[in-house]
Design a protein around this nucleic acid. Structure first.
Length: 302
DNA sequence: AAGACGAAAGTGGTTGA
DNA sequence: TCAACAACTTTCGTCTT
């Protein structure tokens, strides 16, 4: 079976897991892997003293070994297999074993939680096309949530989705709650609740989403030119100085600005097309764009 | 035929008593 | 906790291209 590997650089067998889930040599800092979860072994949880005290028996529990390995339970009664009482010496030993057993289970359960959470995170992030930095932010948030015991009693899926959304917000990578919700079984309501919980309990402060953030993504989906994008951006800038943007759904504003820009630049898209990529109805695109035209006095011949 | 339009009624979330 | 409220959606009939 696998012994903890030696660091190829300095020979140390001590490792730490860095913030972004990389396995790092504790002595020289060499990064050994970027994906610690694939190792499947829990030995990295043993700190130096612990490892000396604990002799390993059996293989490392892998992620696929759901309830095997260490998770056998130990009877609380101080009797042996034949039902005879144990002598005090044996009893003390059993106490010790139970204690460690319980501790290892705590590790295991949080490890297992983390493992399934990370695979869910990966799946969700993949569907949403999230870049690495957003995924890492999400993973970090999840770890914090786990440390703060926010997961217990809630579904992993919900918290993961909330972390993903929060990560998008934090990194100003524009995905809406609805976008995230689209790829998870978690209901919108539950997702929103989890997200608020996360923000509150982790003391996060979020930059509010700006309409501008959504322009590139929508424009891309609609195959609109850079000129049109720039035009939309400048419309939004003016809208902001006029104070029209506050209180409205930023995606709606972005959609409306793009609609106007597409007409001005001669690459008209229908209200429906734009509404579709922005996830709003044609009616709302219309209302917002009418408002923009009126308040900004834009000369758009329709 | 498809898109744009606007009115009216309905929905889910926020706010403030 | 409840009601009022604003933003947004749905639906639908009509007008424009």
């Amino acid at each position: 079976m696998d012994e903890p590997r030696e660091c190829p650089n300095c020979g140390s067998k001590e490792y730490v897991v860095s913030r972004n889930q990389e396995l790092v040599c504790a002595d020289c800092g060499l990064v050994l892997t970027e994906d610690v979860f694939d190792l499947g072994a829990e030995w990295r949880e043993f700190s130096s003293e612990e490892r000396d005290k604990r002799a390993r028996a059996g293989p490392p529990s892998t992620l696929t070994m759901h309830d095997k390995g260490l998770s056998t339970t130990i009877d609380w009664r101080d009797v042996d297999a034949r039902g005879h009482r144990l002598d005090p010496r044996r009893r003390a030993e059993m106490q010790r074993i139970r204690k460690w057993h319980a501790r290892s289970r705590v590790y295991q359960s949080s490890e297992r939680n983390l493992a399934s959470a990370m695979s869910e995170l990966d799946r969700l992030a993949g569907q949403l096309d999230l870049p690495r930095r957003v995924r890492q932010t999400a993973a970090l948030l999840y770890r914090h949530a786990l440390e703060r015991n926010l997961i217990r009693g809630r579904s992993i899926e919900a918290i993961v989705a909330a972390c993903v959304y929060a990560a998008c917000r934090r990194t100003s990578f524009p995905r809406t709650l609805a976008d995230v919700g689209r790829y998870t079984r978690v209901t919108r309501k539950e997702l929103g609740r989890s997200y608020r919980l996360l923000v509150r309990r982790l003391g996060l402060q979020m930059p509010i989403a700006q309409p501008e953030d959504f322009i590139p993504r929508y424009a891309n989906a609609l195959r609109l030119s850079q000129r049109t994008q720039a035009r939309a951006q400048s419309i939004l800038m003016r809208a902001r100085t006029e104070g029209i943007t506050s209180g409205k759904d930023p995606t709606c504003i972005a959609a409306a600005a793009l609609y106007i820009a597409s007409i001005m630049e001669g690459e008209r898209r229908t209200q429906r097309e734009i509404g579709e990529v922005a996830g709003v109805t044609e009616v709302t695109v219309r209302n917002r764009y009418k408002e923009l035209v009126r308040k900004l006095k834009l000369g758009v011949e329709v």
